[in-house]
Amino acid sequence: MTEGNAEPTINDEPIFAAELTPYRSLGWRGFRILLLIAGALSLVHIFVFLVIGAWPIVFFFGIDFVLLVGAFWLNYQAGRAREEVSVSRTDVSVKKFAPSGRMIEHRFNPFWARFSIRRHQEIGIVSMRISGGGGHTEIGSFLNYDDRETFAAAFARALATARSR
C-alpha cells in the first residue's frame, strides 16, 4: 500500500445510505400533457376572442401560458435538489446538492453526532437536524411528513447501530 492510498476498512463501510429527493407529483410525461392541453385551450380562446374583435384579450392568454410554463420550470429546477446521507462506524456524512449542482458536505463523528427532531402535535416531524463537533445541518427539509417519519426512524436506528458496534 502506498502513502495516500488508504484502503477502506470494515469500519468505513456504510451501515446506512439514503438519497433524499423532493417529491414531484407530476412527472415529465404528465407535464407535457398538461402543457398540450393548456396550449390548446389558450389557442381556442385566442381564436374566439380574435373572431369577436376583442384582440387585446389575446395577449393575456399568451401571458398566462408563459407564466404557467415558467412556474413549472421553476418547480422542476427546485426539484433537482437532493441530499445524500450515509452512516458508517467512523463517519456520518451529509452531502447537499443544490439545483445548480453545487455540493456542500457536512461530516460528523457518529459517537458525538446528535440527531434532533422537532415535532408539531398535529402534523408530525417539522424539522430534523444533525449536530456535533461545533457544526450542524438541517436534513430532509423538502420531504413530505410521511417520508420524514420513515427517514427519521431509519436514520436513528443506523446511528444507534454505528455507536454500538
Rank of each mutant, 00 (worst) to 15 (best):
D91E: 11
V48Q: 06
H120T: 04
A78T: 06
G70T: 09
L68T: 06
F47P: 01
V51N: 07
L36Y: 09
V48E: 08
R82S: 13
E7P: 03
P8V: 10
V94K: 00
D12Q: 09
Y76E: 02
I104Q: 14
R80D: 09
L43N: 11
L35I: 13
Q77I: 11
V126R: 14
F72P: 00
I130W: 02
I52V: 14
G70C: 10
I139G: 02
R118N: 13
G70N: 04
G132K: 05
D12T: 13
W73K: 01
E105D: 10
G140Q: 02
I37D: 06
I10M: 11
E13D: 10
E105F: 02
Y23G: 09
A113L: 03
G79V: 00
F65G: 03
V69W: 09
A6S: 11
P14W: 05
A6E: 15
F108C: 02
F142S: 01
H45D: 08
A81E: 04
S116R: 12
R118E: 12
W28I: 12
T21F: 08
V69T: 07
V94W: 00
V69E: 00
I37K: 05
R107D: 07
R102K: 11
R82Q: 03
F31T: 15
G140T: 03
T137V: 07
D64W: 09
V48M: 05
A40Q: 08
G53R: 01
G132A: 08
I57C: 04
A40T: 15
F72N: 07
L36Q: 11
S42A: 13
I46H: 03
W73Y: 13
G70Q: 03
T21C: 11
A98H: 13
G53W: 00
R119D: 12
R119P: 05
S88F: 00
K96L: 06
D64H: 08
A71W: 06
G135S: 14
L74P: 04
E19P: 06
D91G: 00
L67K: 03
R102F: 07
E105Y: 05
N109E: 06
S42K: 00
V48D: 10
G140A: 02
G39V: 10
I46L: 05
D12H: 13
L50E: 10
G39N: 09
L34F: 14
L34K: 04
I104W: 08
A54P: 06
D12W: 05
G101V: 04
M103S: 11
I33E: 12
S88A: 01
F111Y: 15
A38T: 13
G134N: 07
L67F: 14
T9S: 15
V92R: 00
M103Y: 01
S93D: 02
F111L: 09
I15A: 14
E19S: 14
I125Y: 08
F115G: 01
